[in-house]
């Protein structure tokens, strides 16, 4: 599966390429080639975030999913959404507090204050409103959350929707709010816990065409979604508008990642595109720990490498912003080495 690409393949050509041979392209002489795919000697650059996990349960999975999808909508990037969020996993009835099926959902933001605001809005507008749902904190209890100052409201303020008919219920040391609604009552745990997290792990998939790129990205996202503690917040887990830090326009904090736009090949001096690459898609990963993000990136890379050059994949790269974005660096080669990904 991971034999070096022969010289007559596009990947092999890319591996031989250098800046001097092809103006506007990056040197790839240090790249690794697995199953005909060039793995760039680069790293993804991620940054610290705050995160929380909530459990949304409902009468059945359909309604739990409606609520989870709605609550995580318009939560692709902190640049303009306030938070990044996604469905982490489906939870069976045996693993939820109320014995009903549901979903665990992860929310990430740049500060605890902003995350508290987003949780209140999203749970209030998307979960409270959804038939039969209930919402619970998703992290295990430590018993010391308040002392650590890592607690934000979940149902704490939503209870006022009950207009005085809301009822507090403390069960086994946990406070819940029961808010009367038209299908019965909405039950929400009073608070949820925050944790430090890592946002912005990423992979860039450079493919021959749109069909191949979508297939590869979908496979990578499927592999990543099997892992706990991570979400891929963009639509379908994939983003086509990868960005770089900054812009020529002072008002913008981010702008298109010109180096990876095939349409700008030959036009920009720092293009990362080779002539055989016609479509680039990115997968952004937010995780609870550095290890979680790294594991998801590795899973995604492996899924893509397995499809390989025959499936239209030419290169795997990552968003390297030269240290301007954050302190977490996920080196693609090191990830592969640590997990025995090289053969």
């Amino acid at each position: 599966m991971t034999t070096p690409a022969p010289p007559n393949t596009p990947a092999g050509a890319a591996a031989r390429a250098s800046t001097s041979e092809r103006p506007g392209t990056r040197p790839v002489s240090e790249a690794r080639i697995l199953n005909g795919v060039v793995i760039d000697d680069t790293f993804a650059e991620a940054f610290p975030m705050k995160a929380t996990r909530i459990l949304i349960t409902a009468h059945n999975l359909t309604w739990a999913r409606h609520a989870a999808v709605s609550a995580t909508g318009f939560a692709t990037s902190v640049i303009a959404c306030g938070c990044e969020a996604g469905i982490e996993a489906e939870i069976g009835p045996d693993d939820t507090p109320d014995g009903r099926p549901g979903y665990s959902v992860l929310f990430f933001s740049m500060s605890g204050k902003e995350l508290a605001k987003q949780i209140e809005r999203r749970v209030g507008q998307c979960v409270l409103t959804c038939p039969t749902t209930a919402v619970f904190a998703g992290f295990p209890r430590t018993g010391n959350e308040r002392a650590e100052g890592e607690v934000i409201g979940l149902g704490r303020n939503l209870r006022f929707f009950g207009d005085g008919w809301q009822i507090s219920k403390v069960i086994n040391g946990v406070r819940y709010w029961r808010i009367p609604v038209m299908d019965g009552e909405f039950v929400a745990q009073e608070t949820t816990t925050l944790t430090k997290a890592v946002g912005g792990g990423n992979l860039l998939i450079l493919a021959t065409d749109t069909d191949a790129a979508l297939l590869l990205a979908e496979a990578a996202v499927r592999a990543m979604r099997r892992l706990p503690n991570v979400v891929m917040p963009f639509p379908g887990g994939v983003v086509r508008s990868g960005s770089k830090v900054g812009s020529k326009y002072a008002a913008l904090r981010a702008s298109t990642n010109a180096a990876f736009c095939p349409g700008l090949y030959g036009l920009t001096a720092d293009s990362e595109i080779t002539p055989d690459v016609h479509c680039v898609l990115e997968i952004v990963i937010d995780g609870l720990t550095e290890a979680d993000v790294g594991a998801a990136m590795l899973a995604g890379m492996r899924a893509c490498i397995e499809i390989g050059a025959d499936g239209g994949l030419r290169r795997i790269s990552a968003g390297n912003y030269g240290g301007k974005l954050g302190p977490y660096l996920f080196h693609l080669h090191r990830l592969l080495d640590m997990q025995g990904g090289e053969s």
Binding site: P97, D98, G99, I171, Y176, R178, G184, E185, V187
Partner: peptide, 12 residues
């Protein structure tokens, strides 16, 4: 009104 969620929390 249905109170099955609160009942499950309490009953458990």
């Amino acid at each position: 009104g249905d109170a099955s969620v609160a009942w499950q929390l309490l009953a458990r």
